[in-house]
């Protein structure tokens, strides 16, 4: 490739990266029509970009990262931050990430996980309303097989699933929707049986139960009675 074409190479790249103005795009298109080397480079760069975006994983930050935040050696400046705590449910929930609580709070991980899942693009790793698609997706990703069910007819359609990290272990998260509100249902192996109990944590409704060798925790901003119904349907199946 000649030096001239190296300059074109930067333009070809900038075009694929969406950084070129219309006039330059037109000039580039005319050149590529007459230059097989540059046309080939364009194909290669486009294919490389697609492969990177499709194949290279994008891990999410471990919840432990946020949860393990501790004050720096000089504590001044952190206490006042915490002194401003609890001005509204949303704020309180966001700050669950920064709470420097002396004792672990069993709800903090759940709430933090739910909030992080609500960030754009984080809700689901597998998007499907078909339980036969979601269930196999977990195979090989976790060392247990969660029961995946759809309750669309009862007003709680399954919309997808993802992996999450709670209490030091990887758990399955099933995502449902009820009246446009997402519900996260975390599932992991546990022994015993316990009927659903609904509580509230930092403005969110949380339902917990244990059945069939699995512990379930559902969290959502729907009203607690609706979450109770969701848990009841799940637990009585």
């Amino acid at each position: 490739m000649t030096d001239t074409c190296d300059d074109w190479g930067l333009l070809i790249q900038a075009d694929l990266d969406g950084e070129l103005d219309i006039a330059t795009i037109a000039r580039l298109a005319r050149h590529i029509e007459t230059c097989p080397a540059c046309a080939g480079l364009q194909r290669d760069l486009l294919a490389l970009s697609s492969r990177i975006r499709a194949d290279v994983p994008r891990p999410t930050a471990p919840l432990a990262l946020a949860a393990s935040l501790r004050p720096p050696p000089s504590r001044r400046g952190w206490r006042p931050v915490l002194g401003g705590f609890a001005t509204g449910a949303a704020l309180a929930a966001s700050l669950a990430l920064f709470m420097l609580t002396p004792r672990p709070d069993p709800d903090a991980d759940i709430v933090a996980g739910h909030i992080r899942a609500l960030q754009p693009g984080h809700l689901m790793d597998v998007v499907s309303t078909d339980s036969h698609t979601v269930k196999p997706w977990f195979d090989g990703r976790i060392d247990f097989a969660p029961d995946v069910r759809d309750f669309a007819t009862a007003g709680f359609p399954l919309i997808g699933g993802r992996l999450d990290y709670l209490g030091g272990r990887v758990v399955a998260a099933l995502v449902y929707r009820h009246a446009q509100h997402p519900i996260d249902l975390y599932v992991w192996p546990a022994t015993g049986t316990a009927a659903p109990v609904v509580s509230s944590a930092k403005g969110y409704a949380v339902a917990r139960w244990t059945a069939g060798g699995m512990a379930y925790t559902a969290i959502s901003d729907i009203n607690p009675a609706d979450l109770q119904e969701f848990a009841r349907i799940w637990a009585m199946r």
Binding site: A61, L65, A66, G84, L91
Partner: peptide, 19 residues
């Protein structure tokens, strides 16, 4: 600098980019 408003702004603006 550690007012509730600023803490809220930090949580809202910065934490979404943790990943």
């Amino acid at each position: 600098d550690a007012s509730p408003a600023r803490t809220e702004a930090f949580a809202r603006l910065v934490l979404p980019h943790l990943d």
